[in-house]
Design a protein around this nucleic acid. Structure first.
Length: 313
RNA sequence: GGACGGGUGGGUGAGUGGCUAAAACCAGCAGACUGUAAAUCUGCCGCUCCUUGCGGGCUACGGAGGUUCGAAUCCUCCCCCGUCCA
């Protein structure tokens, strides 16, 4: 066990101080950061996705950000592949990988792997979406019920996104979802993985979120959005769906005061944080720390978790 | 001082005699989620008791009375708020 190279994971809801803790740990333990965040993979969307600006990175290399252009679609499978490459690179250079994870699905895709399922098919999705438009979301669910009863029982009739994915898997492989998932995952091997979870008290976390949104606005978030519009990033592009970006784009386009969007953005971010917490609560073997990543006691506790010889159960 | 309009659960707001613990939306809480995941979706949401049931009890629609078998809904008075007239 002790022969395996270590892999640190810092996970937690947005604004819990993951990036900060990650950098401090990297400084002490000769590590580098692997960002695990579905929004930071997009170039040009910087302020609202809370990327750590280079001047604040403390000289610690940050990987897995700015991977694609805004009009591209990025997926968990893609993330897994890139992350594995990055891990191999760090291993060669004998650096401690520290994953700063805010996107639970991506983290799971990397650590536990994904089933051997087909990638998205845009044409098929186009057809399915058209069907939903014409005959309603319920018709898609009925279609899935015919193709894959078990999957349709598990997915809510209105959850069009998941229904489409299930139909897609069934059509592309001819196999029901349960069979594909039953075939197993391909977990990441060869690491002594230590997971540190940041879980600050809810009220304090919410207060930080509120303050951070204000700070992002003060840092020129609206101008960033203006720039994105000018460079021709379409409203339909994925990153414009991210929290804050949709609200700000609307306001900027309508030439309304962007500041008026602040309460709505704070609200959406708080709800997002809640969803992250729900997801991470299920994550196996996490050393939970009830505080923010920038607090000295938390750093001390995290260092302990990272360095003990035998992994605690 | 007078004339209207209005006061409903944390918020907005529907409800004009029983089907109403009270629509809807928001907020809040909890949850699901294996290739869009900062996405998408689900449940709960006055208090309380138990044999957890489309169960019982209590409290609730500004306040106090009243009418009625029955009131958030009708009547009386009072208190607030808004607009207008003086």
């Amino acid at each position: 066990m002790t022969g395996l190279p270590r892999l640190l994971v810092v996970l937690g809801p947005t604004a819990s101080g993951k990036s900060d803790l990650g950098i401090r740990l990297a400084e002490k333990l000769d590590g580098e950061i692997l960002v695990c965040d579905s929004t930071q993979v997009y170039r040009h969307f910087d302020i609202g996705t809370a990327k750590v600006p280079p001047k604040d990175q403390g000289g610690i290399p940050h990987h897995l950000t700015d991977l694609v252009e805004p009009d591209e679609i990025f997926t968990a499978g893609e993330y897994r592949q890139r992350a594995i490459k990055a891990l191999e690179d760090l291993r060669r250079r004998k650096k401690l990988p520290i994953i700063a994870a805010g996107t639970g699905l991506y983290l799971r895709a990397l650590l536990e792997g994904l089933a051997d399922a087909p990638a998205r098919s845009e044409e098929l999705r186009e057809r399915l979406r058209a069907r939903a438009e014409r005959h309603g979301a319920a018709s898609l669910h009925r279609l899935l019920a015919r193709l894959d009863r078990e999957a349709s029982d598990r997915i809510a009739p209105r959850d069009t996104q998941k229904i489409i994915r299930a139909v897609e898997m069934r059509v592309l492989t001819g196999k029901p979802v349960s069979e594909i998932h039953g075939s197993g995952r391909n977990p990441l091997q060869g690491y002594d993985i230590r997971k540190i979870g940041l879980l600050p008290p809810r009220t304090r976390l919410y207060a930080r979120i509120d303050a951070r949104v204000e700070a992002m606005m003060a840092a020129g978030w609206a101008d960033e959005v203006r720039g994105l519009i000018h460079r021709g990033v379409p409203a339909s592009s994925k990153p414009f769906q991210f929290i804050g970006y949709s609200e700000l784009r609307n306001r900027v386009e309508a030439e309304k005061d962007p500041k008026a969007a602040i309460p709505a953005i704070q609200q959406a971010t708080r709800r997002f944080a809640k969803r992250q917490i729900t997801w991470f609560r299920k994550e196996p073997i996490v050393h939970w720390l009830t505080g923010f990543g920038d607090e000295p006691e938390i750093l001390a506790a995290a260092l302990k978790v990272a360095q003990v010889r035998t992994q605690l159960p």
